[in-house]
Write a protein that binds this DNA or RNA. Structure first.
Length: 670
RNA sequence: GCCGACCUGGCGCAAUUGGUAGCGCAUCGCACUUGUAAUGCGAGGGUUAGGGGUUCGAGUCCCCUGGUCGGCUCCA
């Protein structure tokens, strides 16, 4: 056998001489390599290496590898759908976090039974070991070949017109237009094909059994509300069945922590249908948690130089005309109340109605407070804080328990600062925010910096001030030492912002606090202060919410702790369980002592058995159960039982009391 | 707002092809007086989210309204 000509390429970081017809298959024989990265581009394993290429293997377990796995699974799903329903038209089918989806235009929506049938068909396709074969085509040929796929034709058109194809980049992305053929070796023929940029796994068999179809939902074609709705099937896919199972366990864990479920279980809050969608009432237990949160927040704000203000829930339209909300936020507001209209006998308007609106935001009110007197540079920074209840007419489909509601209370503050002190003030605010979040038990953060989109005329304020403010925000963020993720173009039209993203106990990320600069409202309200040189200057406003909304933060904490609130937040901090009735007066004595220090303690002297009491109070997440019987009393002691079932027996009474008080005071989780 | 699924005593669930609402927990009463996750017995409680329709008959079928859930879109 002749040795073929050699070429030189960098393979996995090493420069090697390799046969000139080398492909990923010949270079990497480990089964875990599913694709290649050639000169930075993802390629199929079958890609032929050229002279001077830099080639790296893509392992199945890597982020790229997982995406390829999931993308290939999406293809198999689409093939299964068209096998079972040849009339189904293909939309797009990209990989997403943990899985994939594929959109279809079908006459009848899919049912859960359809999903089971589709999984069966997918299994068959996977087991049949079809090869994914890449084929380069062109607009004209592809259009003929895919004449029955109107959505794909549209994508081809978009690609050639170089429009932004958004999520559809998985199908037609940059570069050549390609089709992937599914080649069935046994049948010796192409059994299915899809317009796709690739790359794919070499073979359907590699998808294995670590996948599942999860749900169906409608989705607008190309994400545009004015387009037709397609039926979307979501799936999840993993390198192994075990990893799939792990993922499912994680979802179950998340479901167990769902604040809507825990809120009902622990009797924290509810959404009575009589009140209306997205409007919650807090029950006594939820009320305690909320009050403690608010009290602590107030105390901290007080220490940090904030002044407390209050504003009404309704206002005449005029205020929101000045602020601009009616111009650009009207659809997020409840419709106006029309007041004081008077008609004469003929029904003609004698006196025109006044429109009043429920406030969707507090800032305009605070601007009026600012304006209530002439301000000096000596007054700045002026920090106004309010637990301001706002009402927003969220679309019915977006409501989600207490984290996305129609009425909620923001821990809102507006800081009016001189331009030159923005940096100092922002640093203070960010430190304040992080410090307070840590007190509530969130410790894992990163920051997101949302900046102006260059060249977009919607942004108000001079380039100069944007530049300066953005640089200041970036500096402050960098100084915090936290990871900073840029969000270019994500700024509001009126100013850049930093948002704090917090990870919860099971690794989910929640957007928490936002710190937002505003060049717009000071302008609209014509806010001024007198500078040392006697000139009138315009302050900059910083909007800042720490919890975002108390309700939302409450929901996040509920999920973070899975209802096991730390003692300082627990509605009932201690329950005393006597072994028998005769011991309850001893526990009442301890309760009196604890209660005088503000501890929320109850003695359960109902006539249930003590085992039952322990079960009940454990299920209701009481941090400390104090048990006392003859033994304990003899030693002037008490026995602790914790939520996890662990216990410490015979703790001297004074020690027990000291421990409880200390844990509460230091906000320790138990 | 759009698509789909769903709504049965306080909570979680059940009720063959439409045949006239059951269970567990919780609640109340009685007994038991207990050492670490459910003591026993008994009782009360729903006309099936609200309204309309089809039918001899509707929790089951159809329509409208409200609400919930999963997505889409939205969350300056």
């Amino acid at each position: 056998m002749n040795s073929s000509a050699q070429i030189t390429a960098t393979i996995d970081g090493v420069e090697l001489s390799i046969p000139q017809d080398s492909t990923g298959f010949t270079l990497f024989t480990e089964k875990s390599v599913v694709a290649l990265r050639v000169n930075g581009e993802l390629r199929d394993l079958s890609y032929t290496i050229s002279q001077a290429d830099t080639v790296e293997p893509v392992h199945l377990e890597s982020p790229d590898g997982l995406n390829i796995l999931r993308h290939s699974a999406a293809h198999v799903l689409a093939q299964a759908v068209q096998t079972l329903n040849p009339e189904a038209k293909l939309g797009i089918g990209p990989p997403i976090k943990d899985g994939f989806y594929y959109d279809f235009d079908v006459d009848k929506p899919f049912t859960p039974e359809d999903l089971r049938a589709l999984e069966k068909e997918m299994d068959r396709i996977i087991r049949s070991g079809q090869r994914f074969v890449r084929r380069v085509t062109n607009d004209a040929e592809a259009s003929i070949e895919l004449a029955n796929e109107p959505y794909k034709i549209e994508l081809i058109g978009l690609k050639s017109s170089t429009q932004d194809v958004g999520e559809a980049s998985a199908e037609v992305g940059a570069g050549e237009l390609t089709i992937y053929d599914n080649f069935d070796v046994k049948a010796d023929s192409v059994v299915w094909k899809d317009l796709c940029r690739g790359p794919h796994l070499p073979n359907t068999r590699m998808i294995g059994n670590g996948y599942a179809l999860t749900r169906v939902a409608a989705a607008y074609w190309r994400g545009n509300q004015t387009n037709k709705q397609l039926q979307r099937i979501y799936g999840t896919a993993w390198p192994s069945k075990e990893q799939l199972r792990e993922h499912q366990v994680h979802l179950e864990e998340a479901a167990k922590r769902d604040h809507r479920r825990i809120g009902a279980e622990l009797d924290l809050f509810s959404f009575p249908e009589e009140i209306g969608s997205g409007l919650a009432v807090f029950h006594p237990k939820g009320g305690i948690i909320r009050k403690v949160m608010e009290d602590y927040s107030r105390a901290r704000h007080e220490q940090s130089g904030y002044e407390f203000v209050y504003s009404p829930h309704v206002t005449k339209a005029n205020l929101f005309e000045t602020s601009g909300h009616l111009e650009w936020y009207a659809e997020g507001m409840f419709p106006p109340l029309k007041l004081d209209e008077e008609l004469d006998e003929e029904g003609n308007v004698k006196r025109q109605a006044q429109d009043y609106y429920l406030k969707p935001m507090n800032c305009p009110f605070h601007c009026l407070i600012y304006k209530s007197q002439n301000r000096s540079y000596r007054d700045l920074p002026l920090r106004m804080f309010e637990f301001g209840t706002v009402y927003r007419y969220e679309k019915s489909g977006v409501l989600h328990g207490i984290t996305r509601a129609r009425g909620f209370t923001q821990d809102d503050a507006h800081l009016y600062v001189a331009r030159e002190s923005i940096g100092v003030e922002l640093t203070n605010v960010l430190n304040f925010v992080l410090d307070l979040l840590r007190d509530y038990g969130l410790t894992d953060f990163y920051l997101e910096l949302s900046t102006k989109e260059e060249g977009n005329p919607k942004f108000v304020g001079s380039d100069e001030i944007w530049k300066e403010a953005t640089a200041t925000l970036a500096q402050v963020a960098t100084d915090s030492g936290l990871e900073l993720v840029p969000d270019p173009g994500g700024a509001a039209f009126y100013g850049p912002k930093i948002s704090v993203q917090a990870k919860d106990a099971i690794g989910r990320t929640w957007q928490m606090s936002t710190i937002q600069l505003d060049f717009n409202l000071p302008e609209r309200f014509d806010l001024e202060y007198t500078a040392p040189d006697g000139s009138k200057q315009r302050p900059v406003m910083i909007h800042r919410a720490l919890f975002g909304s108390i309700e939302r933060f409450f929901g996040v904490l509920t999920e973070h702790y899975a209802g096991h609130f730390p003692p300082w937040l627990s509605p009932v901090q201690v329950v005393g369980v006597p072994v028998a009735d005769e011991f309850s007066s001893y526990l009442h004595g301890i309760a009196t002592e604890l209660r005088s220090s503000g501890v929320r303690i109850q003695i359960d002297d109902s006539d249930e058995r003590m085992q039952k009491k322990i079960r009940n109070h454990t299920l209701s997440r009481v941090p400390y159960i104090l048990i006392a019987g003859a033994e304990d009393i003899a030693n002037d002691a008490v026995s602790f039982r914790f939520r996890d079932g662990s216990q410490i027996n015979g703790v001297p009474r004074s020690e027990a009391i000291a421990r409880i008080l200390k844990d509460i005071a230091e906000k320790i989780q138990v």
